[in-house]
């Protein structure tokens, strides 16, 4: 009856190649798991549990987990609660900008099935429709201890190499893009070129391309560099 008994059956891989390289891989994964940067971006109510989790009382830093201000340098995207549809666009933009490997953690009820906002027209109900999620932490909101337990589980999974959902985004990009298009319209487009990235990582899968990516190509505007601007006019001195 209790579902927690469902354990993922460990896949025993036939190890081959240079044994030293394997050791090196293990070492890299170990180091990666001990130095995680959480993107300093919070969505819903659950964000309130993060300051205590980070600071001295629960002290996430003893596990090597720290907040990080920029998505390009962050490893973990914490979705701390309900995601309004407007926010979801930003979340996707942010996620795509993060460098791989990257991990998504869904916190609170809302990221699983809508939570107490289940009737709201303005919030997304299932986070995993729009991006692959590595881990969920139950609660409304979960206590800092639960957050830390979750992150420890994530660390274990990184160390063992099981936390690889980021590859899924490349391999099944068409699915995720389709859900995004359903919500945001056919002309939905992000500045990140996922397909090229997928090729780069050699993660082109059967689900990378499909009808939705074809739709994207039809609507895609060439990306332009943003003009750097400060205030109204940089030439005029600020009074």
């Amino acid at each position: 009856m209790v579902m927690s008994r469902i354990q993922k059956i460990p896949v025993v891989e036939e190890k081959k190649g240079n044994p030293l390289a394997r050791v090196f891989d293990d070492l890299v994964r170990f180091c990666r798991s001990r130095s995680l940067f959480i993107l300093h971006y919070c969505t819903g109510c659950g964000a309130i549990e993060l300051p205590p989790a980070m600071t001295s009382r629960f002290d996430m830093e003893r596990l090597g987990i720290q907040p990080m201000v920029s998505p390009r340098q962050a490893d973990i995207l914490l979705i701390t609660g309900y995601v309004s549809i407007k926010t979801l666009k930003r979340v996707i933009l942010t996620y795509e900008q993060m460098g791989s490997p990257k991990y998504v953690v869904g916190i609170c009820s809302c990221t699983v099935n809508g939570g107490m906002y289940w009737q709201s027209y303005a919030t997304a109900k299932k986070l995993d429709e729009y991006m692959p999620v590595d881990l969920y932490i139950a609660g409304c909101m979960p206590r800092p201890e639960a957050v830390i337990s979750g992150l420890q589980k994530l660390m274990d999974r990184i160390k063992s190499g099981e936390a690889d959902s980021w590859q899924d985004y490349y391999q099944n990009y068409d699915y995720y893009l389709g859900n995004q298009q359903k919500l945001f319209g056919e002309d939905w487009q992000t500045p990140t070129d996922i397909i090229t990235e997928a090729k780069h990582y050699e993660l082109m899968g059967e689900g990378t391309l499909g009808e939705h990516t074809r739709l994207l190509e039809q609507h895609q505007n060439p990306l332009e560099a943003l003009e750097m601007r400060l205030g109204h006019n940089i030439k005029e001195p600020i009074e």
């Binding site: 009856m1 209790v2 579902m3 009737q119 109900k125 299932k126 429709e129 359903k182």
Partner: peptide
């Protein structure tokens, strides 16, 4: 509106 635009979690646990 939600039923048209969004989908729910479909659980099918062992129990």
């Amino acid at each position: 509106y939600i039923n048209e635009h969004l989908s729910w979690q479909e659980y099918n646990p062992e129990w």
